[in-house]
Amino acid sequence: MGNQKLYKGSLQTIILKLLETNDKMYGYEITQHVKELTKGELQITEGALYPALHKLEADGLLAVEVAKVGNRLRKYYKLTESGTKETANKLEEMQEFLKTMQHLVNPKFSME
């Protein structure tokens, strides 16, 4: 929970990665999935999730699909073709970032 600020800059990459794995997801499902995967370490708030989803949608990386589920309508997000490409780029960037951070915070370990 104390690392929320560190995760903030990676929110779009997290969302893209989740959608790459799960085909299509709705907002609440994304928050719960992240909470579950990180054992509660990362909790995406509504105030962070929807602006990020809307930005990705505006950039053409996500497409929207509406379906009736039980007593209500549900808005699903899925990757577009360019979204799939961007996910690969973002994940590569993330790997590079993690490698650099590893060099910085643990130089001995990274030299091996």
Binding site: G27, Y28, E46, V66, V69, R72, L73, R74, K75
Partner: peptide, 14 residues
């Protein structure tokens, strides 16, 4: 609306 409605309902149900 449908997105916020669905989120609130899902949260309440859980």
């Amino acid at each position: 609306r449908m997105e916020v409605f669905d989120h609130i309902i899902s949260d309440i149900e859980v």
